[in-house]
Design a protein around this nucleic acid. Structure first.
Lengths: 209, 209
DNA sequence: CCAGTATTATGACGGCCGTCATAGGCCGCA
DNA sequence: TGCGGCCTATGACGGCCGTCATAATACTGG
């Protein structure tokens, strides 16, 4: 997304941003080293200097921004999938609770497949580097916005009134992020399923008939 | 609470654990140094070695455990305060939503006073060191348990059925932790107030008449 | 007062970090 | 064929880290 057109196979720069995001969400910002990023991306260490003259700060900020965009795109995709399957099966419209369930399920699948080793990179960056440079904090804010905005739009398309959609989007992301934390701590997907179950009636009730 | 009776003034050991918790919640685990902990506690650097032969891992784990116990005690205190004031004013009983509001307000006050520089140490430890030693992860799990358990009990005493109280406690802590993250990122207390408002009806509806 | 333990104090060591400097390879274009 | 850019490669530097070793000091019980 930095370039208008991505190279046919992901270029080294893109690979490094992606590798940084992966490492950050596993180990946190502080414990992620530049050398490690280059190694993970199978990119030369010198290229980090070349593509990211701003140093580690720039790499981390781009990784966080990428993660925010990714989360936003996932929301759009879930909405499209749910809308299609709901229309085909019952001729109806999916509920906000089903959208949240899809978002949570993504994490449950990942935890079950990868074993609670990784969390949300935006959360990691928020915790780790709020106190550091202002640009790092701004990057996390932008990432949350890039996630909240499509989610708000999705809720609106699910007949949630425009006055409540932003608040519910904030609630959904908050609950999801917190549940992810608890899942990692307890090494269990239970918090995510619990939150999904408990939140569903509230979310569904917000959609006007 | 490590010792049955605390020394009249907090001893150096206790001060170091406290200082570690403060630094962790501001900078994260990785960015918090042993020398910094000692300096903040106004304790000699050699005492860290003496009181914590397990090294940084031990200090961090004790700080996280302390934070969990602290959060649990806060829940008990809020419940007591709300119960008393509700009984005096209306002769009634406080609602679960009011309990959540009290928990959130603590953070709002802190953010407004200290400027979004600090978050929850348990969240920081979870993000930073899930991948490191197993004991660190266990410490975060124990901390969440030390928080969830009193909260579940509090909900039960507010007439939430025992079958739903644990789930609601998980939801409350998840939403609170996530909202704290978003507040820090956006440098605004809005997420906390939003979550409090949106969650209140759900929580209150769970209390049987 | 003395012995012995608890605490404090300080310096050194090895390791990893992010960054910089400096070459070396590579490829398109004249 | 040569030249000028992008990219790659590699080593060095200073700094901070956690830990260890070794004292010096304070305190308590006899």
């Amino acid at each position: 997304m930095t370039a208008p057109r991505a190279p046919r196979t992901h270029g080294p720069r893109e690979r490094m941003v992606f590798a940084a995001a992966q490492l950050i969400r596993r180990d946190g910002v502080g414990a992620t080293g530049m050398r490690e990023i280059a190694a993970r991306a199978e990119a030369p260490r010198g290229s980090l200097q070349h593509y990211f003259p701003g140093g580690k700060e720039q790499v981390v900020n781009e990784a966080v921004a990428w993660a925010g965009r990714y989360a936003g795109r996932r929301v759009d995709r879930y909405l499209a999938e749910l809308t299609e399957s709901a229309a085909r099966a019952e001729g109806g419209r999916p509920t906000p609770g089903a959208l949240f369930a899809a978002m949570a399920q993504q994490w449950i699948d990942e935890f079950e497949a990868a074993g609670f080793t990784t969390g949300c990179p935006v959360a990691a960056a928020t915790v780790d580097s709020t106190a550091s440079t202002p640009s790092a904090r701004e990057a996390t804010a932008a990432a949350f916005t890039a996630w909240t905005t499509p989610l708000t739009a999705a809720l609106t398309s699910l007949r949630v009134p425009a006055t409540r959609a932003p608040a519910l989007a904030t609630l959904m992301i908050s609950a999801l992020e917190g549940a992810i934390l608890m899942c990692r701590a307890h090494q269990s997907t239970a918090p995510l399923t619990t939150v999904t179950t408990e939140l569903a009636p509230l979310l569904d009730a917000a959609a006007v008939s």
